[in-house]
Design a protein around this nucleic acid. Structure first.
Length: 405
RNA sequence: GGGGAGAUUCCGGAGCGGCCAAACGGGCCAGACUGUAAAUCUGGUGGCUCAGCCUUCGGCGGUUCGAAUCCGCCUCUCCCCA
């Protein structure tokens, strides 16, 4: 496809667009647009839509944002569409259930945090942010009907998520059929050159391309990035509890990356979530996977917390790996209500919240999961009193506390 | 509007008068193994003053020596037909 006469500057940009990308519809069109952008000095308008349905971004979102950042550095214009109007519909992509629409108040509340967190990756000062209520609120009912006339029911229903829901007799709100059209209309309104989305977004992205063509514009180029999975193999999502959030402290982030990424996904994570050159990634993967995993964790943690944060996270991680426990053990006070009394170990654990209940604590002790001052104690009624303080207590591999007076 | 099915411990889902704190699977916790991974194996998974006791099976009331299991009412879900 890339002809031998392809301008090297165009080729270089194409490489950025291509890294980790799944769909690119169509590559030759993109080459042409890049070439013309270079010739005229006019940046491409690159659209990315976000639903302000949740305030907290996680590593899964970072895949797209990092791509946008790279594109931004090429000098193109990122247009972030805040889907405040579409959020009230709810994107049916990947959903098997009708989801409740959000109120305007919810949306406004999420928006600030949302944009703020995206700013950890994107240069927001160079990003155009548009709310799609800007044009949707201005539409009259006849405008809506005209837009709806642009698509057929069969075309909408052929979508896999709708097909599945029909088959499973799950409800599909009529309003949900509108979502792809609304998203597509955004592209028309901002005269979009290309739009990025997750692989689950391809259908929606293509609606934009079609609508633009129908409106006399050149249809946008569409490209998609993979969705990353959490440690449990499911799509990373806050509601599944498998997400690594942008705002997590360095150690947590580092540790979660190590624990989350299966060996089979290492290559993808490097490709999608770091800027380590592809050749270097290949070399890393040819070596010790353990080392590659730690490197990945450093790269990701470093991106969000800087080199110092990444280093401290790694040090902490290694300290724990050596079995030394956390560098800085949380202190808990001897429970005031038991001042001056001896307590059975199980009750002590529950009292300082190292276990949920006395019964829970008792079980842990009986399973050899509890260490006091580094030694396993298997007797749940072993008595401790304030004279024994301070006590370093550990339940399981990761929960530590120092009990003090 | 009419007809039917059902609500059980974190989830799914058995149980249909005593042997039920309630099978089984998932999840989760812990132990072994390990790369604090994955996979695997083992144990655990209502509470407590823990070889025993106490409180649970949508809610309220009833039958019974005894109810998650039977009866009545209530609340909420789902399905089919229109």
């Amino acid at each position: 496809m890339a002809s031998s006469t392809l301008d090297p500057r165009v080729a270089a940009q194409m490489a950025v667009f291509r890294r980790g990308t799944v769909d690119l519809i169509e590559a030759p069109e993109l080459e042409a647009r890049i070439a013309s952008s270079l010739a005229t000095g006019k940046p491409l308008r690159v659209k990315f839509g976000m639903d302000p349905t949740s305030a907290d971004l996680h590593v899964g979102h970072a895949v797209q944002l990092l791509k946008l950042r790279a594109i931004q550095e090429l000098g193109h214009q990122i247009v972030l569409i805040v889907g405040d109007a579409t959020a009230m519909v709810g994107d049916p992509s990947g959903r098997n259930k009708l989801r409740p629409p959000l109120s305007r108040a919810d949306i406004d509340k999420n928006l600030a945090t949302y944009v703020d967190q995206a700013g950890k990756v994107l240069d927001m000062s160079r990003t155009e942010v548009r709310r799609n209520s800007e044009w949707f609120d201005a539409m009259r009912f006849e405008d809506v009907l005209r837009l709806l006339g642009r698509a057929t029911v069969a075309r909408m229903l052929e979508r896999d998520t709708f097909e599945k829901r029909m088959a499973e007799r799950e409800p599909i709100g009529v309003h949900e059929l509108l979502y792809p059209l609304m998203q597509g209309w955004d592209s028309v309104m901002i005269r979009c050159d290309l739009e990025l989305g997750g692989t689950d977004q391809l259908f929606n992205l293509l609606r934009g391309r079609d609508l633009q063509a129908q409106e006399g514009q050149v249809g946008q180029v569409c490209f998609t990035m993979p969705l990353v999975n959490g440690g449990d193999g499911r799509k990373m999502s806050k509601s599944y509890g498998n997400a690594i959030g942008f705002l997590e402290p360095p150690f947590d982030m580092f540790q979660k990356v190590v624990k989350t990424v299966p060996d089979t996904a290492l290559a993808d994570w490097f490709l999608l979530l770091t800027r380590v050159p592809e050749a270097e990634v290949a070399a890393l993967l040819a070596g010790d996977h353990r080392a590659a995993q730690l490197r990945l964790a450093r790269e990701i943690t470093g991106f969000f917390h800087g080199p110092a944060g990444a280093t401290s996270a790694r040090d902490e991680y290694e300290r724990r790996a050596r079995g030394e426990g956390p560098g800085d053990v949380e202190e808990r006070r001897w429970p005031a209500e038991h001042a001056g009394k001896a307590l059975p170990l199980a009750n002590l654990l529950a009292a300082v919240k190292l276990a949920n209940t006395n019964s829970d604590a008792r079980r842990l002790v009986q399973q050899n999961a509890v260490k006091v001052n580094g030694l396993v104690v298997a007797d749940p009624v072993a008595a401790y009193s304030e004279a024994d303080l301070p006590l370093l207590v550990q339940t399981g591999k990761a929960r530590f506390a120092r009990i003090v007076r």
